[in-house]
Design a protein around this nucleic acid. Structure first.
Length: 455
RNA sequence: GGUCCCAUCGACCAGUGGUCCAGGUCGUAGCCCUCUCAAGGCUAAAACGCGGGUUCGAACCCCGCUGGGACCGCCA
């Protein structure tokens, strides 16, 4: 039988980390088994559900690379895929239970009568055997059994009822959802029993917690997947990171692509312990994915952040910019960081803002002038030659490389950290290096008139 | 209060009765490299919550305790 799984968010907000995690595991299982991934919108809460959120959730899923086979936007053989469009199905089936005496009306609502002594145990794919009785379905602080509302007074179905109807009629084989739904499962099982339907397999996923071990919420900072996109994380990284929460590929594999994960995924390897969301680990995973990117792709990723910072991206040639990013090496854990760490390639402005060359004595300035003019006169403008030239100068003077290299670094980048400064100088080109050094008074302006050959 | 779930380094995972004085990764610390910072290489500190069983033998099985968490809405 074909595997059919579903992700069923309610469109009352953006796609959150927890929802993304659930969607991801459903996707993984569908792809792993060659089955179908259904997107169903649970919009029975009229007050909070909007089409806009529905769209936001779908684009959040697309950003993560989670494509679905059936859904409100693309249809399918088991539609409609919005609960608000399935009202008649809910009503008809509830009426059936009323006719059989299993449910009753109360005003405009329909409630299912909970009988005591009904065994509601099930074998969870990840949690194993879970034993419960209908006797546990009580009202808070009460001994009375609580009947289950099927249809509300406003005509809308309740969550616990709608899921059962939908999962049944959509032929869902595996219900993969958060652990917070374990305690809803017995109620749903009761309804499957009432209809005489075979329930799907249930696989509950561990919760994702914040640093304080509490359920992830707004208090913990970024919680929607889009916030991570805006922070400069790659979808591949967020995917990879989320996949490692509650599951491991085994063989010490931690960094992988969606396709690799889909090939390796096993529901039986899902953990039961709630997992704490660790931003440091996400950073690391993002850095790994960033490193694996080819220069062109990395450039595409970083460009928007340069543009956002007001840097003149169009003034430079793509290949050159890609080289600059390659030179950045492993620096920067996100595209945003990488963009900010590399601004000096695109413009001298931020450099000037960061560094004023204030604490340079006249004596030092004189030495720097002589050093930098020697450097600028180097005919072969390559990192190797520049460094060799600098070294011999340093040796002659009995000075330290650090003194000159750091000043050069400040003058070219305005930062105290950067890639090898001779590499940076080589890439920037002789003219640009001269311009920056002149600005700080480390080179006589007149020198630009008798510049050496090859400039 | 009731029902249910969980319990390995600070964090994420590995581990399914002996090969575990517990392994990998992030983070942390140190060293190497070095013009700086990353990256890279090397090293270190760091955990089976507690108590009982079962067994020749338990991180792995059972019970209790403790500690976390979820749910108990005409929200989903």
């Amino acid at each position: 039988m074909e595997t059919r799984v579903r992700f069923a968010p309610s469109p009352t907000g953006a796609l959150h980390i927890g929802g993304g995690h659930t969607a991801l595991f459903n996707w993984l299982w569908a792809r792993r088994t060659g089955g179908s991934f259904v997107l169903r919108i649970e919009d029975t809460d009229r007050d909070r559900s909007t089409r806009e959120y529905e769209e936001t959730i779908m684009s959040g899923m697309r950003w993560l690379g989670l494509d679905w086979d059936e859904g409100p936007d693309r249809g399918g053989a088991f539609g409609p895929y919005r609960q608000s469009e399935r009202l008649s199905t809910y009503r008809e089936n509830a009426e059936k239970l009323v006719a059989e005496g299993k449910a009753y009306r109360e005003g405009d609502a329909i409630l299912y009568r909970v009988l005591p002594g009904v065994e509601l145990s099930f074998d969870d794919v990840v949690y194993g055997r879970i034993e419960t009785m209908s006797d546990g379905l009580r009202e808070r602080d009460s001994d009375a059994l609580k009947d289950i509302v099927l249809i509300r007074s406003d005509g809308m179905p309740t969550y616990n009822y709608a899921v059962v109807i939908d999962d049944h009629f959509m032929n869902i084989t595996h219900v993969i959802r958060g652990e917070d739904h374990i305690s809803n499962t017995p109620k749903q099982l009761l309804l499957y029993g009432a209809f005489g339907w075979t329930p799907p397999l249930f696989a509950h996923l561990p919760m994702i917690l914040g640093r304080d071990k509490k359920k992830l919420s707004k208090r913990h900072g970024a919680t929607s997947v889009y916030e991570y996109r805006d922070l400069g994380y790659m979808p591949d990284s967020v995917f990879n990171f989320l996949a490692n929460l509650g599951w491991s590929a085994g063989e010490d594999r931690e960094i992988f692509t969606r396709q690799e994960a889909a090939r390796l995924f096993e529901l039986s390897r899902v953990t039961r312990k709630p997992a704490v969301f660790d931003p440091d680990k996400l950073n690391h995973i993002n850095q790994e994915h960033l490193k694996r990117l080819d220069p062109g792709a990395r450039l595409d990723l970083v460009k928007p952040f340069w543009t956002e910072a007001g840097l003149p991206v169009e003034k430079h040639d793509d290949a050159w910019l890609a080289d600059a990013l390659t030179l950045m090496g492993g620096r920067g854990q996100t595209a945003r960081e990488l963009a900010s760490f590399s601004d000096y390639y695109l413009s001298f402005e931020p450099v000037k803002e960061r560094w004023k060359a204030e604490d340079i004595s006249d004596e030092l300035r004189a030495r720097l002038r002589s050093f930098f003019s020697a450097l600028l006169s180097e005919p072969d403008w390559t990192p190797e030659r520049l460094e060799a030239r600098a070294r011999s100068r340093v040796e002659e003077e009995g000075a330290k490389m650090k003194d000159y290299a750091m000043t050069l670094r400040y003058a070219l980048t305005g930062m105290k950290v950067s890639p090898g400064i001779f590499e940076v100088a080589a890439l920037l080109g002789r003219d640009e290096v001269r311009r920056r050094l002149e600005f700080y008074g480390f080179v006589q302006s007149s020198e630009s008139d008798n510049r050496p050959k090859g400039a």
